[in-house]
């Protein structure tokens, strides 16, 4: 009954007090009130013991002021795990067959750029070749990512590899496993503490020297013994099998039909906007004004700009200072008109 009247226990330590208040409130309604002694007893009741512990840094809170004055001085402090924001947890990497579709779904406006890279690197291409293939795509500043960033995304997704690094990893010989003396542990146990520290220091120095030697392996020196950097081949980029599989699965016409099927209330609008832009390249203002009184569009359905976005992502429209149908878009329109 107390819960039905809204007297939910806020803290464990105050639950008993809340239940008592609930009982008295119920009594006041059902029996016409409570006695002054009962009311005074409630007022004089000691504050329930505090059982709520403020969060600490171990809980992810670097500072959680308890006093109201402190919270006023530092508004927002203690809210959220601030420390966690500085060290965000990284999600586990997806396998390529999941990561590649996820990348393309996330980068919908730039699918053309990603697909161009994968298509160019189908048989392996050098960096200048890939950049040259992408250059026309950047003509109208339709991508904020550089080719370097796009290639990095594809590499991280498992759709692209750098052939030089791939070959180096394949050719790298396995390091020989050194056999340790069978009684090495017994020797350390019997060694003096000072000798043990010396041994650890020597091991550390040896490890550092080995690391530097590996870092400088293959170094080139001039006649003065100075280190010289020689230009190395940039390597080639190769689309992986998973990347090729996804690339070949991309079917813009199928995506167009799927988009039309998903929006039956404006299915004709997809064709109409392509046709409107085919008459003359249009900007978004002209398109919106043209369909301002069209009953198919509106707050209860979709706006023309949504259709333009979908057509761009599919590849039926392209921005070339104005929205212009692509070759695929014109073919789709011709097929529709032929029906």
């Amino acid at each position: 009954m107390a819960e039905e009247m809204g007297f939910a226990a806020a803290h464990d330590g105050a639950e008993a007090q809340q239940q008592e208040l609930g009982r008295l409130a119920l009594k006041s309604f059902t029996e016409g009130g409570i006695s002054p002694e009962e009311a005074q007893a409630v007022l004089n009741a000691p504050e329930p013991p505090r059982t709520w512990t403020p969060p600490t840094a171990q809980d992810g809170f670097d500072y959680c002021p308890d006093e109201l004055e402190d919270r006023m001085i530092n508004p927002g402090s203690g809210v959220g795990a601030y420390a966690a924001l500085l060290q965000p947890t990284e999600a586990a990497p997806l396998p390529p067959h999941e990561a590649i579709p996820a990348l393309f779904a996330k980068m919908k406006p730039y699918r053309q750029f990603l697909a161009t890279i994968l298509e160019t690197c189908r048989e392996g291409s050098e960096t200048p070749t890939v950049d040259a293939a992408l250059e026309p795509c950047y003509e109208f500043c339709s991508c904020v990512y550089s080719p370097i960033a796009l290639r990095k995304m594809l590499v991280n997704a498992g759709a692209l590899v750098n052939v030089l690094e791939w070959e180096d990893e394949a050719a790298a010989p396995e390091e020989p496993q050194l056999e340790t003396a069978p009684d090495e542990d017994d020797f350390l146990e019997d060694a003096d503490e000072f000798l043990e520290e010396e041994l650890q220091q020597l091991e550390q120095e040896a490890a550092e020297a080995a690391e530097e030697e590996e870092l400088l392996s293959g170094s080139v020196y001039d006649q003065e013994g100075y280190l010289v950097i020689e230009d190395e081949a940039e390597g080639a980029w190769l689309t992986t099998d998973e990347g090729l599989a996804y690339l070949d699965s991309i079917d813009p016409r199928k995506e167009f039909r799927a988009a039309v099927a998903q929006h039956p209330e404006i299915d004709d609008a997809f064709y109409d906007i392509i046709a409107y832009c085919a008459e003359e390249p249009r900007n978004i203002t002209a398109i919106v004004q043209h369909y301002a009184d069209d009953p198919r569009f509106g707050p209860s359905t979709y706006y023309p700009s949504y259709v333009v976005d979908r057509l761009e992502q599919i590849g039926a429209l392209a921005w070339r200072k104005n929205w212009t149908p692509t070759e695929m878009g014109l073919e789709i329109l011709a097929e529709r008109q032929a029906q």
């Binding site: 960096t127 370097i148 960033a149 290639r151 990095k152 870092l215 400088l216 170094s219 280190l227 950097i229 020689e230 190395e232």
Partner: peptide, 10 residues
């Protein structure tokens, strides 16, 4: 030298 002789693309 070690850092610059094999520069990352980025």
């Amino acid at each position: 030298y070690a850092y610059l002789r094999r520069p990352a693309e980025s």
